[in-house]
Amino acid sequence: MVNGQDITLGLIFAIIGGCAAWMASSYNGAGGTYPMILGIVLALLGATIAARAAIATQNEERPLVTAKANLIIALIAGAAYVALVVPLGFYTASALLMLCIPIALGFRRPIFTVVSAAVFVMMVWLIFSVILEKPLPREIWLTLGSGGGA
């Protein structure tokens, strides 16, 4: 039995290492030698891992994912959130995320969800916008409200 996971892992990093070394070859002087060596070492380590897995007799593969559906929900929600933070505004997107993920994962206590979303978003607002005064992506409804003048 070969360990497919390790072969894939090894090959991925062998390729990354090779690319890194190849890119480093265009850098001048000592600034290029160091990353080139690192790239080559990475490629060799990757190749070692792949080769070792190919001749191994034992298979130590563990399942990559335990609950595929939930993982995909979380990944899609996370990616959507990252994509929407800027267009919708930070707090709007965050409130949506707080409401959507629990529902998507099968949490059926709407009032609890809404209250905790409100409390949590308020807390983040207090820490980041009031205490730390950090500029965050502007809320879409503020921009629309001012007629696009700002």
């Binding site: 990252v82 933070v85 959507c100 978003v121 965050l136």
Partner: peptide
Amino acid sequence: PGVLLVPSILILMCVGVYV
């Protein structure tokens, strides 16, 4: 409940990284 922690931590991660 863990399902509420998931979005909360995600939000904290994003705000922390963004600022």
